[in-house]
């Protein structure tokens, strides 16, 4: 299948205004090895997407190319109409503010408190400090981490760290939430809480992508579209009810 890139963008502007994420023939190689191969995927505004697949399938890589933590080797990606290949480094921060990310390895700053870790997102976006205080504490409360707002991440359990990571992902009210194994360190009850929490944001209109190999848990809790990948290619997509 060959398709002119400009044509591809035009299509996005005219016919598919509600498409928020589009991937077109995306390849990602590390050395000679494909982590992503020929990915074509359209995601609508407000969709709830699972990305499932075995370990090493390319789930994390797929999320990384979306917020430009990694550059694609070939192919094109459009995010809310912007072509990622054409984003200058000075515009990159503004692209990233549209995303809320839960990283698989949490990426909490070890010598900053829980509060500071979450507040960073809003401070980086230039929010007023009175607003930051209110908003951060409110989000920490909903994930049940408000009592430990002064704690340093290394003193927290894995599950607690994960909840802080989720809080940080949503505190900026992003239009797209990318969550990489957001329930990986949680017991099933806590996992349920986090999923319900992300579901809330989905209901408010955010596009949510969750990458997890724990499909069983995801399927049993919410409805959405499941994108199953293995060895870097999409095996099948299925809409679950």
């Amino acid at each position: 299948m060959t398709m002119d890139v400009n044509n591809f963008e035009d299509m996005n502007d005219t016919n598919n205004k509600n498409l928020t994420i589009r991937l077109f023939n995306v390849n990602k190689r590390y050395g000679g090895k494909f982590a992503l191969k020929g990915i074509n995927l359209d995601i609508e505004q407000g969709e709830f997407i699972f990305i499932s697949g075995p370990s090493g399938a390319g789930k994390s890589t797929l999320l990384k190319v979306l917020y430009l933590a990694e550059k694609v080797s070939e192919g094109q990606i459009l995010i809310e109409g912007m072509n990622l290949a054409r984003i200058s480094s000075s515009k990159l921060p503004f692209l990233r503010r549209r995303f809320g990310m839960v990283f698989q390895d949490f990426k909490l700053i070890p010598n900053r408190t829980v509060y500071e870790n979450v507040a960073l997102v809003l401070e980086a976006a230039g929010a007023k400090s009175s607003f930051v205080k209110k908003k951060v504490m409110q989000v920490l409360r909903t994930v049940g981490m408000d009592k430990k707002f002064k704690a340093l991440p290394p003193t927290l359990s894995g599950g607690e760290q994960q909840r802080v990571a989720v809080a940080r992902a949503v505190v900026g009210d992003p239009s797209i939430i990318l969550a990489d194994e957001p329930t990986g360190s949680l017991d099933s009850k806590s996992a349920q809480l986090i999923l319900d929490f992300l579901m809330e944001y989905h209901k408010k209109g955010a596009t949510v992508l969750i990458a997890s190999h724990n499909l069983h848990l995801l399927q049993s809790t919410v409805r959405g579209r499941n994108v199953e990948i293995s060895e870097g290619t999409i095996n099948r997509t299925a809409t679950m009810l």
């Binding site: 000075s90 990233r96 995303f99 990310m101 960073l120 980086a124």
Partner: peptide, 13 residues
């Protein structure tokens, strides 16, 4: 280093 990396990822200029 971690802090700088995280700041970049969450959209700090």
């Amino acid at each position: 280093k971690i802090e700088v990396e995280v700041m970049r990822l969450v959209g700090a200029t």
